[in-house]
Write a protein that binds this DNA or RNA. Structure first.
Lengths: 248, 248
DNA sequence: TATAGTTGTCTATATCAATAGACAAATTTA
DNA sequence: TAAATTTGTCTATTGATATAGACAACTATA
């Protein structure tokens, strides 16, 4: 975006090949490098970024490993990966409907669940006493077989006893909440940040180390404004962008 | 958040000291490391993250350089920095009012301006013909003397001729638009992503290389829905979080 | 005033990251 | 087929990154 020639920083704790891999990913996402088309040759990229050809090769090797590029000797290096998914966020944010039209299939996989005492933060958000029992769900959002989100979600254990079973069966938060008499809900607040993916996110989202994740911390409420769900979701920045719709 | 012990990745293109510096920043932002309090001693941090003490020292040195920590021989290492700013995003997103209550002073500094032909993307967003003249403003948002955002903004050059002078004088987009008869405007759409800061952002935002920026791409419109402004803003993830208010 | 705890400095070593150059191997084009 | 283009492999060198250990300098406390 803004297509400005943004250059590369040295001695910063992030290796040049990682920075260049990031730039290529950006280039793909922004349409600078077209899908299925050849990347500029290694020597051209090396000149463009002001580094040695071998450094560019390291970046490309990482992206080949990641499944984003495919190199063919004598022919060139080609872009395999599709565009970033655009995940809408608003008052009616829901995983499945949000990606409709961009993917043919999506669901939420339940990785694990547990019951634990609420931390101060979660108790406040859910309007419970600190230490009250809450159910924690660890989930992964999948679309067309690709992991697109990783979330940790908390519910009041008293009110939503057994919601982990509903999640495992339905693969949908919305469907699970229906079983507890909640036919509609709204997103009350969302706080957004970004960080490097940690070990768990790397594994669950099938990312290369060093990847960046967008982090949302959200509270969902009933139509009466009663808080029912607290969630922290992580999205791989290289595969997902978040779209804030106007009247939503 | 979610306070899970997230570990450190090796050979990923991001050096260990940079990853640990990121973790310490996270710890400060999330309240794990309290403001004005001493950090755990270097040996404890080294054990916690499974690295050598010298590696921890490199991370601390970077954060001392950055003004986040202060080390005192014999006593310990102390947290100087305040919490992250929480920047609200919604239909009525405005820089100055958004940070009210969190900072005592804020304004937008105009770094440079130029007139250029609109790219396809910008032309579409502003409803102009491709190649039509647009004014580009490079700005930096400052609060209490700290850089908190870096933005590139485009306006129709015909309709907003001279807006760069208004910006330089008033230090406010809202005030500048008033001079062109626009007393109110709405944010039509926002798309959110994250990436490593580029060279320009590093310099303008006074960041250490390797830092992550949150990126918003937004279109502002008049009350009639007519697009007037296209902007890409970058926020340092370590100093700013974005808050999406419910009914905004 | 010792003593323990903490940060600061130094030396040494091994590995990773980046540059440099040369040439092989495969593909496309003239 | 020959030449040009492009990716793949190899060797060598330099600097940054990370580990290891030892000890100095400073602070707080028993």
């Amino acid at each position: 975006m803004a297509g400005l020639a943004s250059s590369i920083e040295r001695r910063n704790g992030v290796s040049l090949w990682r920075q260049i891999a990031d730039k290529i990913l950006q280039g793909i996402a922004s349409g600078d490098f077209t899908e299925n088309a050849a990347l500029p040759p290694e020597v051209a990229l090396a000149e463009r970024y002001g580094v040695n050809r071998h450094t560019v090769r390291s970046a490309i090797a990482a992206l080949v490993q990641e499944g984003v590029l495919k190199a063919e000797q004598g022919r060139g290096t080609f872009v395999l990966s599709r565009k970033r998914l655009s995940y809408p966020i608003g008052a009616r944010t829901r995983f499945s409907t949000g990606l409709q039209g961009q993917t043919s299939e999506r669901h939420i996989a339940l990785l694990s669940s547990s019951t634990e005492p609420a931390s101060r933060r979660i108790a406040e958000a859910l309007g419970l006493a600190k230490g009250a029992a809450v159910i924690r769900l660890e989930t992964r959002g999948e679309a067309d077989g690709h992991a697109v989100s990783r979330a940790t979600t908390w519910f009041d254990a008293k009110r939503f006893a057994g919601i982990e079973d509903a999640m495992a069966e339905t693969g949908s938060i919305t469907a699970s909440l229906k079983r507890f008499g909640i036919n509609d809900y709204l997103r009350h607040s969302t706080v957004l940040s970004a960080r490097h993916a940690d070990a768990d996110d790397l594994a669950a989202l099938d990312l290369q180390p060093g990847a960046i994740v967008l982090v949302t911390v959200a509270v969902n409420v009933t139509l009466d404004g009663e808080p029912i769900q607290f969630a922290e979701s992580r999205f791989p920045a290289e595969r997902v962008e978040l779209r804030l719709a106007a009247g939503d």
